[in-house]
């Protein structure tokens, strides 16, 4: 499995992509592989403040449910409304069209503290050992 290196990662299997001062957040292909088919994603409203490492939503798969954790603290500026009608996008394109929220980070420099793709791959391998 290959993890893109234009995003950063959390140990809870979220990814974050910083572009123009806004961070897009989703869950990794490893997470979707663990979850199976996603049937519902509960997301916060635009304007809500989220705290780093705190839950910002819930992803329901057929067989299991998982909380979503914010990689960075900040204000939600956009949510992926396409997931309401088509939650399968999370499985199909976890790093692309299956994104979940965009937020304006309170401390943008914290982005650099997230895991690199190499670190994340190592973490996933360690969990499998």
């Amino acid at each position: 499995m290959v993890y893109p290196d234009d995003v950063r990662y959390t140990a809870e299997h979220e990814w974050a992509r910083l572009e123009g001062g806004v961070v897009t957040v989703g869950i990794t292909s490893y997470a979707t592989d663990q979850l199976g088919d996603v049937v519902f994603v509960e997301l916060p409203e635009v304007g809500r403040k989220v705290e780093a490492a705190k839950t910002f939503g819930v992803v329901e798969a057929v067989k299991t449910v998982s909380d979503l954790f914010a990689p960075l603290g900040g204000e939600v500026v956009e949510v992926n409304t396409a997931l309401a009608d088509n939650p399968a996008l999370v499985n199909q394109e976890p790093f692309g069209e299956g994104w979940m929220i965009r937020l304006r980070p309170t401390v943008p420099a914290d982005y650099q503290k997230l895991l690199s793709s190499v670190d994340y791959e190592r973490l996933v391998e360690a969990q499998h050992a």
Binding site: G36, D37, V39, A61, V62, K63, N91
Partner: peptide
């Protein structure tokens, strides 16, 4: 094996 392609498709 818990799944091959996806829970919904297999179901």
């Amino acid at each position: 094996p818990v799944r091959y392609t996806g829970d919904v498709e297999e179901h």
